[in-house]
Design a protein around this nucleic acid. Structure first.
Lengths: 332, 332
DNA sequence: CGATCCGTTGTGAGCGCGAACATAGGACGC
DNA sequence: GCGTCCTATGTTCGCGCTCACAACGGATCG
């Protein structure tokens, strides 16, 4: 910076002003400084700036290593949105979703003096951390569309799940099984509640949901259980990955989708439209979710209360749903 | 830090020594300092340290927003490996894979004085950047298993592709179509070359590969083309996502897998084992690839020449491959 | 025509830390 | 018993930048 100042024949403070576009600078000086910057290939040192301003212009993002499509998509979209907003992003991936790993990750980010943290995994331990404000900086947990630290109700998820199940009910299904996500995840609970609500509204008493962990394998096991029970004519899976597992288990049990059993997923992963049969599912605009999380964090950092809207999830009807088979399968 | 020093009754330099575990400190002092640190909740300021040492302890990672499983998995594994190695990770996601976006991203990372950059996308523009050393810091491009800036031959990919095609050939197939990745990707070329090589070795003259872009949709279109041509009894897709698209296109064309057409993918995405039929594919240990990239970068930063090995990709035979149908389909 | 104000630029200090050097006190050797 | 060497600790300085303030000249105003 001093070099630039010397070359431009000004003080380093003037260079600083040009770089940060603040204060008033005469056009002539500005130009000379900019020329000197270019000539010298000068790049401001962020560490020094962070030190001087006590602002790091960096936010932390905590994701998971699960390899699931949803969280990954949100993660990347958060990264672009943050960069557009002028922040650098320091990313941490959790190998397992445990409290100690989580606090480690937060610690790691705090050591870098991030101005805020976005957590891409809406499970209770994270929310607890957010609520207790233990973190010391704004801490946003992405839970479905409701990227916020309080009121994490994920109500749009609930509605979307209800709609999905109602679609099944409208087709004439009465036995709709549910493959749920981990119960310490807000979104898993919201989707399950939506299912229950739609069933109750139709005067149906659903069986217990089958627990999964978002993974394909867990969906497969759940599908086997459901096929073995032989009650359900439709399955609502809490995400598409599990739906794929169910699809396979059903096929192995000799059940055709949708002729014998209908299947609905959640997320609309890119593969969903290309499964055989194409999967009826609930589409979420996850990139918008990421952007929204960044907005929420910016607002929190600035002490504001902004709120960017996320389009509600919508049901995408494809070919994995149909009316139940006419003759009731098995026991009456 | 000064507070800690005061509380422990030492100089701040001593605190620094305790924190960095260097120099000799009497056990008694160390304990007092550690106690003071705990009591005050002191956390070293990385910006200040970076400024003083002119080392940022941060590496940059550039990924893509494509939503593909492979790059995403590598990205996250790089993040964990880097953190374990004592680095912070500054992540950037590219919305599109263009040269200008790429240089922007590099610029953004350089502004943070990262000590090195890992690029998770082995396309030519990135390699060019690496080769020209325009970046100014070590720049590692992850291309398949060969995470290095020079000699980006991806030879193990080539071998694995050969093995996959030979598997098809051994089953008796003669017409093996290939759905290729974008031709400016090293890995796409390596896999295509492996396919060509295996075909040539068997004395077969393959048709032109069908170009894809790694996406499911492109695989679907390719599958339609292949089904329409009606020549191939087997398809080797350059990644699993495209294989899924092919699978669907084949199903729509009334072709059964594997009875009429065999199908092999590449990557072994989690879904692959749960498709109907379970997909024969080439498994890569992508987490090892990520670790290896971090090692390579560490070595480059340290000026060393270390080299961590990545297990070679291996063929996983599942149920999407079988001998070709006995009566030759269509034109003899 | 002196007081006031604004636009423009410079000055000094300090953000929190580590590198380099300095210092004090003992253990050791001859 | 005096120099030597090591251990344990302190002091000084500067990393590159921004902040608060000062200073200068010209325009404006009464």
């Amino acid at each position: 910076m001093a070099d630039v100042a010397r070359l431009a024949g000004v003080s380093s403070q003037t260079v600083s002003r040009v770089v940060n576009d603040q204060g008033s600078i005469s056009p002539a000086t500005r130009q000379r400084v900019e020329e000197a910057i270019r000539q010298l290939g000068y790049r401001p040192n962020k560490a020094a700036r962070a030190l001087a301003t006590t602002r790091s212009a960096t936010i932390g993002v905590i994701g998971t290593e699960g390899g699931l499509w949803g969280p990954g998509t949100v993660h990347r979209s958060v990264e672009s949105a943050a960069r557009r907003a002028g922040y650098s992003v320091s990313s941490v991936s959790l190998e397992t979703v445990s409290r100690s790993e989580l606090t480690d990750a937060v610690e790691h980010l705090l050591a870098q003096h991030v101005e805020g943290v976005i957590m891409i995994a809406g499970f209770d331990e994270a929310l607890e951390l957010a609520r207790n404000q233990d973190v010391g900086v704004p801490f946003v947990v992405v839970v479905g569309d409701a990227a916020t630290d309080r009121r994490a109700t994920a109500s749009a998820q609930f509605e979307a799940a209800r709609t999905a199940v109602r679609h099944l009910l409208d087709l004439g299904h009465a036995e709709v099984a549910h493959v749920a996500g981990p119960e310490n995840w807000v979104e898993a609970r919201a989707r399950e509640a939506g299912w229950r609500s739609a069933m109750a509204e139709a005067g149906l008493r659903p069986a217990e949901p089958v627990a999964g962990d978002w993974s394909v394998a867990s969906g497969y096991r759940a599908g086997q259980r459901i096929a073995a029970a032989g009650e359900a004519t439709a399955v609502f899976a809490a995400n598409d990955e599990m739906a794929v597992g169910v699809l396979r288990a059903l096929a192995e049990a000799g059940l055709r989708v949708p002729a014998d059993v209908s299947l609905v997923g959640f997320d609309d992963i890119p593969l969903a439209a290309y499964l055989v049969p194409p999967l009826t599912t609930v589409r979420q605009d996850l990139r918008a979710v990421g952007r929204r999380a960044v907005h929420a964090l910016e607002a929190a950092i600035g002490g504001l209360e902004a709120r960017a809207a996320v389009p509600p999830p919508e049901l995408v009807v494809r070919s994995s749903t149909a009316p139940p088979p006419a003759p009731p399968r098995r026991r009456r």
